[in-house]
Design a binder for these strands. Structure first.
Lengths: 222, 222
DNA sequence: TTGGAATTTTAAGCATTTCTTAAGATTCAT
DNA sequence: ATGAATCTTAAGAAATGCTTAAAATTCCAA
């Protein structure tokens, strides 16, 4: 994945370039507006990071012209402005997201990944110990034995495995798997966890799905 | 961190409260404008979530009056309006951000964290000597050994570690961890401190949680 | 469209863990 | 030595999770 950074502050540009290269992106940097736009229009990039204030040509202007040619390539603004109305103005010019300076690297990495997700394609094979989950074929195996899961069971297991090693809070699960965005007070999650454990017939040594009381569940390889 | 939600729709308020409490915020809810403003002006909150349209007093009005007293405490609007000019009008009244309904919990959590970052410190990882506390995964380690803590134990340890090096008064602890705002007269804190010390099995050299007689406790790296 | 099967959700009783209280033991400062 | 504060323990109360079964819904084929 190729990233173009248009940023006149040397320090920030270098910091981003290094960090993103470590994440195995290919990164180019332009330090002022005109060359930035020229590079952007070359069409070689999968995503643009634009500084708001630039010598030569403003980030907004670059974004606007870039959008005419590449309507789908994501653009993220780096902005020192903290007044939201100007940022909104930026979003109207066609940007997909914005990040306020000073930002943390993890934050920007996360946003980049979100924007690139459709393009990067996702892994389709996930594992949890002896269990394999294939999102492409919608199959789950325990060792060589195929386990038949329903839609919801599969979705729940997928969510847990994607977040392997992290505690999954009930509220997040209900949001991601059930798409419920208001108060929930039913035991659906419990019922499905129960079903999963049963179908996967997890012995004590294979206790991959653990309960975190008062919080949720965690999938981990013991 | 203490959050005040002023929102008249029961469902939304409850959903937010629950989710945010799981993220170990202390959450209070007001369901109409006047009581909302009164609570807000008590000055006990680190951030305000205001519904746009409220019975009694509009969110904008609350924001405006609140801003006079607390110029720096962040305010986020929850709004069903999606016309930009009205939102801008809201932002002019002093809000820091706004979120359109219907929103995803993760979205609002992210915005809250952005606003509170200067106050909270950026990390979800806290340390106290050899002890590590991860608010993201709700896990605690002593060295490489994972320590299983209950909700309250975790909340208490988190409070102490966040205030590492500062004396934590009992009244503050009971407010932040138990959300009790009147006079405290039970020994709950002691019991939990005891549980923590036991579970963390602190030797004499690792006496990270010390008693300040007559005042409270302090967490420090010896 | 309709009937039946599969899936999803709700609900209720039971089991377990966590929380709170209270009381006696211990420590600390004067 | 004394009284106040804190520590420790244990037991009952409350909350949370598990399990099961039945009700509701969806899906699919006739």
């Amino acid at each position: 994945m190729r990233i173009l950074i248009v940023e006149d502050e040397q320090g920030i540009a270098a910091f981003l370039k290094q960090g993103l290269e470590e994440e195995s992106f290919a990164v180019d940097v332009a330090d002022e507006g005109k060359s930035g736009l020229r590079l952007a229009l070359s069409g070689e990039y999968d995503i643009l990071l634009l500084d708001w204030m630039l010598p030569g040509l403003s980030g907004i202007e670059i974004c606007r012209q870039f959008r005419k040619e590449f309507p789908t390539t994501p653009v993220i603004f780096l902005t020192a402005k903290d007044t939201l109305d100007e940022t909104l103005f930026g979003l109207q010019s066609g940007a997909n997201d914005y990040i306020k300076k000073p930002f943390h690297f993890e934050e920007i990495l996360e946003r980049i990944k979100v924007q690139l997700r459709p393009k990067m394609g996702e892994h389709s094979l996930f594992t949890l110990g002896i269990i394999t989950l294939n999102t492409e074929t919608h199959q789950v195996f325990k060792g060589k034995e195929e386990i038949n899961l329903t839609q919801k069971e599969f979705a729940l297991l997928e969510y847990l495995i994607r977040n392997k090693g992290k505690v999954c809070r009930r509220s997040r699960i209900i949001e991601s798997v059930w798409d419920i965005h208001f108060e929930y007070n039913s035991g659906v999650i419990d019922v499905y966890i129960n079903a999963l454990r049963k179908k996967l017939s997890l012995s004590d040594e294979e206790n991959y799905i653990q309960t975190i009381r008062g919080v949720g569940y965690i999938a981990k390889e013991i």
